[in-house]
Amino acid sequence: MSVGAALYVAICIASVAVIGLRLTQWKNHPRTRPLTSALILLLGGLLLRRPEILDDQWLDTHTDRTLHLANWSNVLSDLLLAGAAAYICVQVARVWGNHHWQKPIAVAFVVDAIALIVLWQVSDASRVPTRFIASLGGLSGVYSAVSAATILVANLAVLISLALAKGVPTRAKIALAPMALGGLVGVVNGGLRIACAIDPDRFLSTRNHWAWSLAEVGVALYILSGFVSYLAQSRLPELVEAD
Score class of each variant (00 low, 15 high):
190 G>Q: 01
190 G>M: 02
190 G>H: 00
190 G>A: 03
191 G>I: 01
192 L>M: 10
192 L>Y: 01
192 L>D: 03
192 L>W: 00
192 L>Q: 03
193 R>E: 08
193 R>A: 10
193 R>L: 10
193 R>Y: 07
194 I>R: 00
194 I>T: 03
194 I>H: 01
194 I>Q: 01
195 A>Q: 12
195 A>E: 11
195 A>S: 15
196 C>M: 10
196 C>S: 11
197 A>L: 03
197 A>W: 00
197 A>S: 13
197 A>I: 00
197 A>F: 01
197 A>G: 06
198 I>T: 14
198 I>W: 09
198 I>G: 09
198 I>P: 06
198 I>S: 13
199 D>H: 15
199 D>V: 15
199 D>N: 15
199 D>F: 13
200 P>Q: 08
200 P>T: 08
200 P>K: 04
200 P>S: 07
201 D>S: 13
201 D>L: 13
201 D>V: 10
201 D>Y: 12
202 R>G: 12
202 R>E: 15
202 R>K: 15
202 R>S: 15
202 R>F: 15
203 F>C: 05
203 F>M: 08
204 L>C: 06
205 S>C: 05
205 S>W: 05
205 S>H: 09
205 S>Q: 10
206 T>I: 14
207 R>Y: 09
208 N>H: 10
208 N>C: 07
208 N>W: 03
208 N>E: 14
208 N>F: 05
209 H>D: 11
209 H>G: 07
210 W>K: 04
210 W>N: 09
211 A>H: 08
211 A>S: 12
211 A>R: 00
212 W>G: 07
212 W>K: 02
212 W>D: 13
212 W>V: 08
212 W>C: 04
212 W>Q: 09
213 S>D: 11
213 S>Q: 10
213 S>N: 11
213 S>P: 05
213 S>C: 07
214 L>Y: 03
214 L>G: 04
214 L>W: 02
215 A>W: 00
215 A>H: 02
216 E>D: 14
216 E>G: 04
217 V>P: 04
217 V>F: 04
218 G>W: 00
218 G>D: 04
218 G>M: 11
219 V>F: 02
219 V>D: 12
219 V>M: 12
220 A>L: 12
220 A>T: 01
220 A>M: 10
